[in-house]
């Protein structure tokens, strides 16, 4: 737990050297970066909004990882799910909200789970590697939903590649409705709370249920798990489906809570950033939340840094993210170095 924090601080030091080298003050840049990401209400509101999809994808990657699988396909899963959500929201627009919202959410989870289960089945049945299959399915997913949007669900004459809007009954409320003094313009919505609930559920599932135990056993030692009577194949498909379902929930945040339609290119590589979030968060739900918050702070603060400094562009955020990942991956370096100085 201690090492990700050290890695983050070290990354900020390295980033500071870069900022100094291009002739700006690291302290001022960082205070602009973090300050604009946390000020009330617009900063923190957007930061939490940006953290929401990363919590979902971070959890998705973590669950797969606990079963010994690398899900690189969260991006494709969330694209399919977002479109499915929008589709239900458009086609069944006239249903009452109490039915339509759960239906849309189910569509998101089901579509994501289905898209995630495909590489799971391919691995369980034919032994083909999930990394390759999930990457390839990303391309298929994006192309497939772009096609559906372009030729079937677009408002005629709209220059932007987006579907028609979903029915008003499918909108989920923004948190502004519950928090006094929090402006309605901030898109932070109940999907954020859903993300926190999912964290708790994933924690409970993994560490306090028999199925979670079986899943983790498959991840730590497949042969031993099989010897203990666990069906490895079933666990692989199950883990990938859960992972895909979690990634699919990004669609709830984006479609039901924010844009109210499927919008091409809505994802800022959430699926891939989710891998970094899971890595930094040590594949633990609490770690995932903290890592997602950190990455959201960087994204939210990156824009003002780009705009209001003379020389630093938002690429500094990418440098910081990359260095953090590098340092987390090279954790042994810190562990050895620290052990020499401090007794841990």
């Amino acid at each position: 737990m201690f090492f990700p924090v050290v890695a983050v601080l070290a990354a900020f030091l390295v980033g500071g050297v870069f900022i100094l080298a291009i002739g700006e003050s690291p302290l001022q840049t960082y205070s602009l970066l973090i300050g604009s990401a946390l000020w009330w209400p617009d900063g923190i509101g957007y930061t939490l909004f940006l953290a929401t999809p990363l919590i979902f994808t971070g959890l998705a990657v973590s669950v797969a990882f606990r079963a010994g699988l690398l899900n690189i396909g969260a991006e494709g899963q969330l694209y399919v799910a977002a479109f499915a959500t929008a589709w239900v929201g458009i086609v069944f627009a006239n249903l009452p909200a109490a039915v339509l919202v759960p239906l849309c959410c189910t569509a998101a989870v089901a579509a994501g789970a289905m898209w995630g289960a495909i590489p799971g089945i391919l691995k369980a049945r034919f032994g083909s590697h999930e990394v390759i299959n999930t990457i390839m399915l990303n391309f298929i997913a994006v192309a497939f939903v772009s096609y559906l949007t372009q030729y079937h669900y677009r408002t005629p004459g709209d220059a932007i590649l987006e579907t028609a809007p979903i029915g008003a009954n499918a909108h989920i409320p923004r948190l502004a409705r519950f928090i006094p003094g929090f402006p309605e313009r901030i898109p932070l919505n109940v999907a954020f709370l859903l993300a926190l609930v999912c964290c708790a559920l994933v924690y409970f599932f993994l560490w306090h249920t028999k199925w979670g135990y079986e899943l983790r056993a498959t991840g730590s030692n497949p042969s031993a798990a099989e010897y203990g009577g666990i069906s490895i194949r079933r666990q692989i498909v199950l883990a990938m489906a859960i992972s895909g379902g979690l990634a699919g929930m990004v669609g709830i945040n984006e479609v039901l809570g924010y844009r109210h339609r499927y919008y091409d290119g809505f994802s800022d590589n959430y699926g891939f950033t989710g891998i970094a979030v899971a890595l930094l968060g040590r594949n633990h739900p609490v770690g995932v939340v903290l890592a997602a918050l950190l990455f959201a702070v960087l994204t939210r603060g990156g824009v003002p840094v780009d705009a209001f400094t003379q020389h630093v562009t938002k690429d500094i955020v990418q440098i910081l993210q990359a260095t953090i990942i590098l340092f987390v991956a090279a954790e042994a370096l810190f562990r050895e170095g620290l052990r020499r100085w401090v007794k841990f």
Partner: peptide
């Protein structure tokens, strides 16, 4: 609990950063 320790470390850093952040805003003429 290991997590709470980390949160304790992070909190002061975040608070100082927020406090400094507000000042650099009015830098435009």
């Amino acid at each position: 609990m290991k997590w709470s320790k980390a949160l304790l470390c992070l909190a002061p850093a975040v608070l100082t950063a927020t406090a400094c952040g507000q000042q650099s805003y009015a830098s435009d003429d």
